[in-house]
Design a protein around this nucleic acid. Structure first.
Length: 272
DNA sequence: AACGAATCCTGTGCGC
DNA sequence: TGCGCACAGGATTCGT
């Protein structure tokens, strides 16, 4: 479900409430996530540890705990982190419940169970982070670097954006929107892009991600922030899930094709 | 090495 | 109304 903007919206919602608090109990549900630490590991490294910082890398959330352990959360497709101020009837598909020292609860809910919740002891770098590319807002990410990294590579531009090894945090929705905004074809092999093309792509990437964060993320089906609220950026989407409807720039009907098993929405006129 | 495809899950919405 | 099928925002693993 959530891409970089949605994860960042969750981070910004949780950080002011959670930082400085400590976890006092953890409960695990009957069904396991794709990747999930054991209850014993959670108790050992998370319980009675104060939360010092809440960071984000790509689509990963990193809870930095007192003593140096890290709790890593990836929301997969349908994961949610929900904050319950007062104990109430928990919603369905809650797989983890963290109780806090002020009586509130942090729930991890995930219908499809594609998510990950893993704890890493102090000093251990979480392996999933090794494959995460540069942050889109990092000053080190430049058009020249992108041009260098894509020499003699024939991967279609859309797949390149999705795989996250160069630029982190972009998923299917924002890949489609960014390519449309930059007027670049999703099928174009990356080796054919000029430095000017990469500069435009990078500019539009930053503009769209920033706007989506400001709008509280995109809710197409499942996304809710930590307070259970939807985002608003779905009303600003130019192409995603709009096959057959007129392109907002030129009026041509939006096309749809399948790339690497995912739907790509684009305007054949604007993105030729 | 660098691609694409299949895979892990459940829920929803469509056509018949 | 019910059934089967396609599809859904991600990351990993496997085959070519």
């Amino acid at each position: 479900m959530p891409e970089l903007p949605e994860v960042e919206v969750i981070r910004r919602g949780l950080a002011p409430v959670l930082v400085g608090r400590s976890f006092i109990a953890v409960t695990t549900g009957p069904a396991r996530l794709r990747r999930q630490s054991s209850a014993v590991e959670f108790r050992r490294w998370v319980i009675r540890r104060r939360l010092q910082e809440l960071d984000r890398r790509g689509k990963y959330l990193l809870f930095r705990l007192e003593g140096g352990a890290t709790l890593l959360v990836h929301l997969g497709m349908t994961g949610r982190l929900l904050l319950q101020k007062k104990p109430g009837k928990p919603p369905a598909h809650v797989h983890l419940t963290f109780r806090l020292d002020d009586g509130s609860r942090l729930l991890y809910q995930d219908v499809r169970r594609f998510g990950q919740v893993l704890v890493f002891p102090p000093g251990e770098r979480p392996p999933p982070l090794d494959k995460v590319g540069l942050e889109p807002f990092s000053p080190g990410l430049t058009p020249d670097l992108l041009r260098q990294r894509t020499r003699k590579r024939k991967k279609p531009l859309k797949s390149f954006l999705l795989d996250g090894s160069a630029v982190a945090g972009i998923g299917n929705i924002y890949a489609c929107e960014i390519l449309h905004a930059a007027r670049l074809s999703p099928t174009c092999p990356v080796e054919r892009l000029s430095v000017e093309d990469w500069a435009r792509l990078l500019r539009e990437t930053r503009r769209i991600l920033r706007a989506a964060i400001r709008a509280g993320g995109t809710t197409v089906a499942d996304f809710l922030n930590s307070r259970g609220e939807t985002g608003l950026f779905q009303f600003d989407l130019a192409v995603y899930a709009r096959a057959g409807q007129p392109c907002r720039r030129c009026g041509n009907p939006v096309s749809r094709l399948s790339q690497a098993g995912r739907s790509t929405y684009f305007c054949a006129q604007c993105q030729g």
